[in-house]
Each structure stands twice: as structure tokens, then as C-alpha cells.
Design a protein around this nucleic acid. Structure first.
Lengths: 200, 200
DNA sequence: CTAAAATCTAGACAGTGTCTAGTTTAAAAT
DNA sequence: ATTTTAAACTAGACACTGTCTAGATTTTAG
């Protein structure tokens, strides 16, 4: 058992970790700097040595969330390097899984909670990188004739937007029961992707 | 100039209106019951005569937002009753316009700020009605052969999800500059809808 | 006209983000 | 090795928040 030291040693990461914990327990509205500090075992003003303000901590949590998302997305897609259509499907499904397993992190990443994303270079970088990974998948699909020719970034926004939108609506409880009673979220995503992929 | 009366007369609506004002000035994070009360010219605890808590006011604002959205959507679509494809396009565009002109209201409606939507029947009702309006458009498109045959509600979720997702990502600043430099939001939406509508 | 209900005010409480001043420790400079 | 400096942390304060209570005022019902 390590005796309590005045200096934590790795408080910054501990705060991010504590933040994720509070977030998934109490939701976005229940996330407070003071709770995070308490959970990390430091005084209520200690976080200010590592984060300029609450937004900065939120940015760090969001950045971590994006890294997590990127990892899961990449892991889901990589096994199908010879089957672009399956990459699309499994990528979308990984996205959905991440969102449903980390609802509040997903919310913090995409729901306007972080107010000035541009101010946080690490956040910008990982979200750029994630988008580029999507573009790669799209390009592979286009090369294989699975998606129609077009500027790949444009197609990426179109397809990503669709997947993102459907999942967001699902999390928000906005998908009608007349649909949810008959189709799973995976069914819905497959149907949606088919619209882009073309009819068989 | 009407002398100040002890009873406001229509405080409930005044609070909702004040709330919308604060929301569009200070954003979701800047919305507080006390500010709203002050703006409406009543004491800080007066709102509790009309709303159980802050969430209830947020629900009312969201409900008002949905009514607004429904009106704009319907108005944009109605003129094209003989051209389902145009209904789709103008409906999507009206949705985009609403979102960009009322960013924070849109956020409150769709970004998990309202935590228990189910508890607010008026909110559930207007969002159901809005979805049904979308389904109508989809049906018209399917009858005209503009959209492929399928359960219309499923197609509605797919198309609505796409439009909603693209707009959400745009508001969130998540659409890459490599895309935004070359395409307007309308271009992107048209491209996305084309994926569903079929190729010409 | 009176009783009850609805509407509003004022005060209090715990919790919040953030600031300042000071304390402890680690790192750097001599 | 010792001193200086900077980093990490604590404690206290402030204004602001949501919400509760008790009481005042006005409207509505019986």
C-alpha cells in the first residue's frame, strides 16, 4: 500500500480516468470538477494545476474517447482488408457498439458539450485521424465498385453522417417503436448502408 | 405601460420565451432558471409554480422547438405535393436551416440535455408527429418510385438519420475542411439524398 | 362572502466553477 | 551539496446555481 504522497505523480491521467468514471455513472449533467478531484483523492482546486478549466478536462476526456473509438473502429475493420463491403458494415457496427457502451462519452464527444473544439489540438488531431480512417474504407469500397465513384471525402461524410445520425437518434430515444419492435439497430444500419451500396 | 401586477398572467409562456432567448444568447451551458426568471421579471423561485424543475423547462423549450421544426418542415414540403423528390430535398434543407438558425434549441432537442423525454407527453407527441410527417414524405417517394420499396418507417429512419447526422456533424465542426472548402452543406445533403434516391 | 387554491416573494442550503494566497515537494542551478 | 526556482498541491473565498421551505398576495370556487 503506497503511502499518500503530496505529489500524486500522475494526477492528470488520474483525473481523466476519474472523469470517465463519474461520467458513466452520473451522466454529463452529473460531471463536476469537484467530484472528479475527490474521486482522485486530491483537493477541489488541484485540477487547476493540470487543466485550465472544466472545458479543458472535458476536452481531454473527449480526446480519450476518440482514441478509444479509433482503436475499436480500426480493430473491427482490419480483419476484412479484402472485403470492403464488410469493412463498411463492421465499421458501422463498431461505431454503434462504442456509442451504446459509452453513451455519455459519446455525448460529450458529439453533442456540443465541448464548446471550442478548435482550441484543443489533440482533440482536433484524433478526430481528423478518425475521419481519414473512414475515408480509407470509403476509398476501398469505391475501388471495389461497392460504392459509386465520387470525391471520397464527400462520400465519407455522407455515409459517416448516416451511421452517426441513426445512432444518435437511437441513443436519444427518437426512433419510433413501430421500427424498434421489428428491427434491431444492426438491421437498421444494414438497411441504411445498402442504400449507399446499391441494390442487389 | 402596464403596471406591474403581482400575478404575471402568462408566466409559463413568458418563461419559455425567455428561456429560448437566453439559450440562443448564452448557449446550453449558460441557460439557468434564475436568469430566465430575472428576464421574465419574476423572483428566482417563481418558475417552480409552473415547472417541476429545470428539466421540465427544458422539456417545454424542446417541445416548442419541435413545433417550430414541424411547421418549417411542413411549410417547405407542402408546395411540392406533386414532386416527392423535391419534397425530400426541401424537407432536408428546411431541417438544416432550422438547425443552423437555432443551434442551441436544436442541441437541447437532440443532444441528451433532456434526460427523460418519456416523462413529457407533449414532447413525445410532437416528436412522434414530426416523424410521421417524414414517413408521409417517404411513402410519397416510394409510390413515385423515387425510393425503393421497403417498410416506410425503416426508410424514414434511414433517410432522416442521414440528414440529421450530417447536420449534427456540421454543427459540431466535425466536417473536414477538405470537404467544406469544396462543397456547401446543401451540396452535401443533395449528394447524400442521391445515394438513397438512385442514380440518374 | 368566505374558503381554498394558485401564484408569487424571500430566505436558506448544499453544490458548483474559479480565483487567490500560501504550503509542500521536486527539479534546476550554482 | 546547497540554494533557488518552479511545479504540484491545499485551504479559503466568491458569485452563481437548482431546489426547498415558509409566508404573502391574488384569483377562483363554493
Amino acid at each position: 500500500m503506497p503511502a499518500k504522497k503530496y505529489h500524486h505523480g500522475d494526477l492528470k491521467n488520474a483525473l481523466i480516468k476519474a472523469g470517465v468514471g463519474i461520467l458513466s455513472k452520473d451522466g454529463v449533467g452529473g460531471l463536476s470538477l469537484r467530484k472528479v478531484a475527490k474521486k482522485a483523492g486530491v483537493s477541489h482546486s488541484a485540477p487547476y494545476a493540470h487543466f485550465a478549466d472544466k472545458q479543458a478536462l472535458i476536452a481531454a476526456i473527449s480526446t480519450e474517447g476518440f482514441k478509444h473509438l479509433y482503436t475499436e473502429l480500426d480493430a473491427a475493420v482490419s480483419p476484412y482488408s479484402s472485403d470492403p463491403r464488410q469493412q463498411l458494415i463492421e465499421g458501422a457496427w463498431a461505431y454503434a457498439q462504442f456509442a451504446t457502451n459509452n453513451t455519455d462519452t459519446f455525448n460529450i464527444m458529439f453533442s456540443g458539450v465541448l464548446e471550442k473544439e478548435k482550441d484543443y489540438p489533440a482533440f482536433v488531431e484524433i478526430s481528423r485521424k478518425t475521419f481519414e480512417r473512414v475515408v480509407e474504407i470509403i476509398k476501398a469500397c469505391q475501388d471495389a465498385g461497392v460504392l459509386r465513384p465520387s470525391p471520397p471525402e464527400l462520400m465519407a461524410v455522407s455515409v459517416w453522417g448516416q451511421v452517426h445520425g441513426i445512432i444518435s437518434l437511437a441513443l436519444e430515444g427518437q426512433i419510433s417503436h413501430t421500427v424498434l419492435d421489428r428491427f434491431t439497430l444492426r438491421d437498421i444500419l444494414l438497411f441504411a448502408l445498402d442504400s449507399n451500396v446499391g441494390r442487389d
